[in-house]
């Protein structure tokens, strides 16, 4: 009888422990999963500065449309191949979009991309100070206004 009581106590303690441990484990596993899967990105990840620095540990922002975490999008047909992206949300904002799939899976795409991708070069932009005759850049209405005004002022100088 004494042995039986001990056995029940041990089993009971084990069940209690495993319930508690199991619960703790679920909590620990969830964020781990999301970071693990992000490593399967294809190296085209671009991180973006969060809009509110200093609140990065807040697990969600009240009133936000999005919950924090990483979300994998569905596979989309982009004519030359498939695209799949993963969005990382922190502080309720999209802070990163990673490409999980890029159009190089299909034969036709490989043919196209073999010509294209290895040729591209990247650099960090830096000022080139040589004199210019004309400037190209994206315009919007306010930019056009600034450009026009500065041109008007340059004419006023002469």
């Amino acid at each position: 009888m004494k042995k039986f009581t001990v056995a029940v106590l041990i089993i009971g303690a084990f069940i209690l422990y495993s319930l508690l441990y199991g619960h703790a484990n679920v909590v620990a596993v969830l964020p781990k999963n999301s970071t693990n899967s992000s490593s399967s990105g294809r190296g085209s990840s671009t991180s973006v500065v969060p809009a509110t620095p200093g609140t990065t540990n807040t697990p969600g922002t009240p009133g936000s449309l999005y919950k924090d975490g990483s979300y994998t999008g569905s596979v989309a047909d982009a004519q030359w191949g498939y695209i799949q992206v993963k969005a990382i949300i922190s502080n309720g904002k999209i802070t990163d979009v990673q490409f999980l799939q890029y159009p190089n899976e299909r034969n036709r795409s490989i043919m196209i991309n073999n010509y294209a991708d290895p040729q591209l070069t990247s650099e960090t932009i830096a000022a080139q100070s040589a004199n210019v005759d004309i400037v190209t850049g994206a315009t919007d209405t306010s930019q056009a206004f600034i450009q026009s005004l500065s041109d008007a002022l340059s004419q006023a100088k002469a």
Binding site: I125, A126, A127, Q128, S129, A130, N131, V132, D133, I134, V135, T136, G137, A138, Q143, I146
Partner: peptide, 27 residues
């Protein structure tokens, strides 16, 4: 013709200066 590509982060700066003739360039 010398054409600057404007630095989108700093309007007073060009990030490249190109030398072109008989071409079109758009941003």
């Amino acid at each position: 013709w010398r054409i600057g590509i404007r630095n989108p982060f700093n309007r007073s700066e060009n990030v490249k200066v190109l030398a072109l003739t008989d071409r079109g360039i758009a941003t």
